[in-house]
């Protein structure tokens, strides 16, 4: 029992010292694994966030009505009254051009640019929720409202949501392909670094084999090495995701403020982190196993 523990400890020590022996090449390997893991994980997180938005806040079909730029208060009033009178309009909200501009100005970074404008470029607008949200009903309401006086444009935002949905479906499938590809990249990275280690340790493998080491004993340090590389890669991926999320959230903040929706990405939970590590460790174990076995077979065939 104690011997068994010592053997594993020794194998782990050997694997660790392998890292020290070739730090640059091993760092590259770890980085490749980190990218292979963080890229699909990050993209999937983005897609899920967008899907969440499209299903939640933005998915309830609504119309946005933009007045023409020259519309005065009376024109706005008449549209307001017209909407209030319609039974197929459940509720509506008026956003004046001044209000819209003020919201924009509150956005850091945009304030200065807007300050240089000598005229408010934004139209007055209404956000309208219909009673019947079936596509045809929305479309006929849109057509009716579009013909009203001083109305520049009416758009159905459910169409946008549907398009986003379709896009997300497509992106998910694309990410599936990407994930598969990068999984292969990860497996291959581990495979080839482990293979390198095995070839470098040829002499030692031969001696230990001759003096009675079983295949399991010979494989062990290499499996530890591969799994260690995988786990380090997962940890680096975690760091990349953390940095990426921070960068994204900083960049998205102005947009979030503009639309008054929370577009920022949620952090990754500890559970997701563990899952990432486990996935990577499992994959690395399998590919180092394969690598050691195949390389050893080639070596013994040459003998």
């Amino acid at each position: 029992m104690l011997g068994w523990f010592h053997q594993h400890l020794t194998a782990l020590r050997q694997a660790l010292s392998q890292f020290g022996r070739n730090p640059f090449a091993n760092l590259i390997g770890v980085l490749v694994i980190a990218f292979s893991l963080s890229l699909p994980a990050g993209i999937l997180r983005l897609i899920n966030q967008a899907a969440f938005l499209s299903e939640g806040t933005l998915h309830e079909p609504h119309l946005t009505l933009f007045m023409s730029l020259d519309a005065d208060d009376a024109a706005v009033r008449s549209v307001w009254d017209g909407l209030a009178a319609r039974t197929d309009v459940r509720e509506f909200r008026y956003i004046s051009s001044t209000q819209a501009l003020a919201e924009l100005k509150a956005t850091p970074g945009l304030a200065e640019a807007i300050g240089t404008l000598d005229r408010n470029p934004l139209p007055h607008a209404f956000v309208i929720r219909a009673r019947n949200t079936a596509p045809q009903a929305l479309e006929s309401l849109r057509a009716t409202l579009a013909r009203w006086n001083k109305v520049e444009r009416v758009q159905v935002d459910s169409a946008w949501a549907k398009r986003l949905d379709a896009l997300l479906q497509f992106a998910r499938r694309g990410t599936g392909g990407l994930t598969a590809l990068l999984t292969v990249a990860l497996a291959f990275t581990v495979f080839s670094t482990v293979r390198q280690q095995v070839l470098a340790a040829r002499g030692e493998i031969e001696v230990t084999h001759l003096i009675g080491a079983t295949a399991g004993y010979i494989r062990r340090p290499f499996l530890y090495f591969g799994v260690l590389e995988g786990i380090l890669g997962a940890m680096a991926a975690w760091l990349l995701l953390w940095l990426g999320r921070r960068w994204y959230n900083d960049a998205i903040q102005p947009l979030s403020d503009l639309f008054a929706v929370n577009l920022s990405l949620a952090g990754f939970s500890l559970r997701e982190g563990m899952l990432l590590c486990l996935t990577s460790a499992g994959l690395s174990w399998a590919s180092s196993y394969l690598s050691v076995s195949l390389t050893l077979r080639r070596l013994s065939a040459k003998r």
Partner: peptide, 8 residues
């Protein structure tokens, strides 16, 4: 050989 046999 001792390590291979699990003796430490």
């Amino acid at each position: 050989p001792l390590h291979i046999a699990g003796l430490y």
